[in-house]
Nucleic acid binder design. Sequence first.
RNA 1: GGGGACGUAGCUCAGUUGGUCAGAGCGCUGCCCUGUCACGGCAGAGGUCGCGGGUUCGAGCCCCGUCGUCCCCGCCA
Length: 630
Amino acid sequence: MSLDFLGNLERTHLCGTLRAADAGKPVVVMGWVNRRRDHGNLIFLDLRDRSGICQVVLDRELTPEGHVRGEQVRPEYVVAAVGKVRLRAADAINPKMETGEIEIEATELRVLNDARLAPFSPAEDAIQNEEVRLKYRYVDMRRAEMQRNFRLRHEITRAIRESLSKQGFLEIETPILTKSTPEGARDFLVPSRVHAGEFYALPQSPQIFKQILMISGFDRYFQIARCFRDEDQRADRQLEFTQVDLEMSFPRREHVFGVVEKFLSAAFAAAGVALPTPFPRMTYDESMRRFGSDKPDLRLPGLTDVRPAFTNDALATLQIDPALPVVALRIPGVGELSRKEREDNHPLFDQKKGAKFIDDFKRLAKSFPESAAKVRELTSAAEADFVIVVAGDPAHHIKASDTKFEGRLSEREINVYAAAGNFRTELAKKYADRHGAFRVTEETVEAAHAHGGANAIDGAIDGSRAFHPIWIVDFPMFEYELASAKWVPAHHPFTAPYEADMANLVSDPASVRADCYDLAMNGLELGSGSIRIHRKDVQQQIFASLGISDDEARKRFGFFLDALEYGTPPHGGIALGLDRIVMLLAGAPNMREVVAFPKTAKAIDLMAEAPTTVTEQQLRELHLRVALKS
RNA sequence: GGGGACGUAGCUCAGUUGGUCAGAGCGCUGCCCUGUCACGGCAGAGGUCGCGGGUUCGAGCCCCGUCGUCCCCGCCA
């Protein structure tokens, strides 16, 4: 078919904005054919643009030519409708449409472009086949849900920029082509053409640059920064992602918390959600004990210590390690599970970590009726609640991991808590429909207002329909590496220890706490930051305690160590995952729903078909030769 | 690197114990229809059951391998 030119035609309105008040106005709208309903002499087109949908009527009597065009168009053709807004007859009003009281009586329809039939229609809800969605991302993103997600992302980003600007932060860009930063993940490398055999690294974070900006006297810096980490992906992890990165001079951590709470509640407000401040806090140890995670999801009940429910004899019979935690997790509203259903859940439990579980309470009650009853009592389990006991498995006892330091959770204890915590979140995800606590709906948003966000961290069910931020503090400074019998930093080596713990750096590394902090929300780590080391002597002590020689330090961080010596103010900061913030507010099950062109779990861009091989010529210019191991 | 789920028409799926099992709905194409809005009616097209091998008289179904997508562990502070 022949196509029409746009000519001098000017769009006057967006489809979704037309209302009864516009009746009688001449309009020109442009967009995509969402649906077509052909009644012979009368054709209805649902025309869609980014604002929504409105109905265009093509009447053969009124516009014979327009009617012919209407017969020719197909889904996703791009058209311009010229006509007049008119009120619909009372019995023709569609209350399900925002524009349902009016329609456009067309006098002309220009077909600006045709379209191949897509494998799915943007008029429908999301299809299940994500592979197809990602390959035809341009079609997928026409869907109302995607349009909403990216509008939301824009509003959130804008609110954050405005809040930080108001709080005196300067947005400064840092290099994408740079040097490897000490974040611990694998770097993406970019070969240099000019310098044969040498490589740039893409930043894992602007960490060193932002610290240098503090040395440079900018006092308060932020950046909506793209970061790159070459690690395997997850639902909440992409190879490249966006961080709200900030750093400030002369702060204590409370100042950082204040800044974050301010911009985050501004971001949530932009999405229509009230996020009360200040956010609650919890130590790392407590978070592990109560949730088996350092990014606790407070929407559901935490772990319960049920050690008192069991006698030593009972533990011996059940082959449970009496020296390790015995905890119970409870998923509300799951109801009775058959043996088969329970067994289907078993792969969700991570057994490698020396933990085991009991999910068959009928069987437990047969041998140990009092214990079974006591567990349900301790966990305040209702009839329909699913309860599982998690404990240490003596059969998977690794001797060396017994190493226990005063005042700290041992590795084995952490493993039991983590196994329980992981099982808890996996089951919670699986039974989300039954407990309903993860639903993000208009109701949730309303509830967030009504409940004031539930600062109570006990995960009471009535406060569960909301967003639950929590600061995790008092992380240990070092972790004990069994293999090498050495203390290794739990964070990047510029993280400051508590000033009060500094004296123990060498004598008692186990007791040293780091002045760093995580922000968690609904089971996601939203961000992480710290007060940094600003003194050369402290930095040297840290390197020394980590067994990093001067030479090695110089090689890895030379330019930064130099900079530290030219008048470094005390400073600290944080970085928050923007994608994750948007994900939460969009109620998205994974990050790909809020990233325009994401990569798959195998790190492939299905639309652009990246990565690819390159030409010999390109390799030559980069002084490279590919030698694949086969 | 490891574990798990999935893979049948463009999409969503059904397919029992290996034996009329190549199926449905939606979508698509053609014709008809002046008040639909998930329009309706009639007719029609559309399949290497992801791919390769094996077992069998016979495989969508069983076995082995492989590829792809997703989730998790490792990894990512």
